[in-house]
Nucleic acid binder design. Structure first.
Lengths: 206, 206
DNA sequence: TCCTTTCTATAACGATCACTACAGAACGGC
DNA sequence: GCCGTTCTGTAGTGATCGTTATAGAAAGGA
């Protein structure tokens, strides 16, 4: 039994031997390994080598392999989420927002170091983790649908537009592009695919 | 040194103890396990259990785990390839062919037993195997492009149509649908995505 | 200076991995 | 019946898996 923190201000004062590595840097490196190789194909040995630490440090800082993977995934998604939300809010129209997102994706998915999307092309045998991945992959749909609903209210999209289906479609295109990027497609090729996908945008009301 | 087969008619006469299992049935079961779990997450133990045989029989009949996987993948692709080629040849127009393929995919990708596409969503850490998968995923593009080129020649598609980009686009949509199917999307949802993708079909010449 | 706390590195843990040595069983040919 | 061949099941191989016990090092508090 411990008394609740006597100092309510912030974190407890540091006690004991300080950790010799930067948690965030280590997480970043773990993320890259998981990104390249996937969850199953990445061993704890791979991780400790890339992170520059020993197993006990990894387990003390991140719990176990699965929690480390989830932390890496969360780190990966965080930046993307912010970009998506910002683009959806700042673009003048929903159409421009989607086009901007797909064109940006064409660039990001074909970056040199870690190609493709860490989340979209992730596969794993464990059912629980697999359904977690499925939920995360489905999450952006709700954000897109909300923006499309707004576009309907504002008259950009025709009344009666199936905004859920439209969100499904552009999510699907992005995930397909993720596979393409992982498989070595060029940025140019993904840009062409993004432009093709924009031809499916519903006919305007005007 | 062995003399070339003295009986040139068919396979050499059966000698030794006959194998106690049906090779094709065993391969079918291995395929389903690989399909559900992926290459890395599937152990030889999983395979022998599903195939109803012991490890030595597996290795004698299929070489090793990787060759068994490739054989299972080939078996998987064979049926699909035939369907695609047939649909591309028999449909009245390229547009109808693509629409038919995507709608059929919406059904197949949401089948009860093994959801998704064994090839599209496959991921593995080994680089050589990964690039083999990438090649296989790219193969259908050439078939689509050939059909689109024919459509241009026949006047269905405008001259100057980027048929390669069009093939890339519909391949990408299919692969996105494969992820959606694996993640539990409904057939209805994939049908809606397929219909949305058809809105991207180039404007006719007429 | 000594104690408590928390990290570190070494060196393992049992379990499982892909794979195989071995001996016996089941066939055709003689 | 016997032989050569090829399959079968048992029981392992060494390697690697994810994880942890342990002991010592490095910090703050007294």
């Amino acid at each position: 039994m411990k008394k609740p923190d006597a100092n309510p201000s912030t974190a407890a004062v540091q006690r004991g031997r300080p950790r010799s590595f930067d948690r965030d840097t280590a997480l970043e490196r773990a993320m890259q390994v998981f990104w390249r190789q996937g969850y199953e194909a990445t061993s704890v040995s791979d991780l400790t080598r890339a992170m520059g630490i020993n197993p006990p440090s990894l387990y003390a800082a991140f719990g176990d392999k699965e929690h480390l993977y989830l932390a890496a995934l969360e780190r990966y998604e965080q930046g993307r989420r912010e970009n998506v939300v910002q683009q959806l809010e700042e673009a003048a129209t929903a159409r421009e927002a989607i086009e901007g997102l797909l064109l940006a994706a064409a660039g990001e998915l074909t970056n040199a170091e870690c190609r493709g999307c860490m989340l979209s092309t992730a596969q794993c045998g464990d059912e629980r983790l697999q359904s977690t991945l499925a939920e995360r992959r489905a999450a952006p749909k709700r954000v897109l649908k909300a923006r499309f609903d707004r576009a309907v209210r504002e008259g950009e999209l025709p009344r009666g537009t199936d905004t859920g289906a439209l969100a499904d479609f552009y999510t699907t295109v992005f995930q397909g592009m993720a596979i393409q990027g992982r498989d070595g497609a060029s940025r140019k090729s993904l840009v062409a695919t993004a432009r093709a996908a924009m031809r499916a945008w519903p006919k305007g009301v005007n």
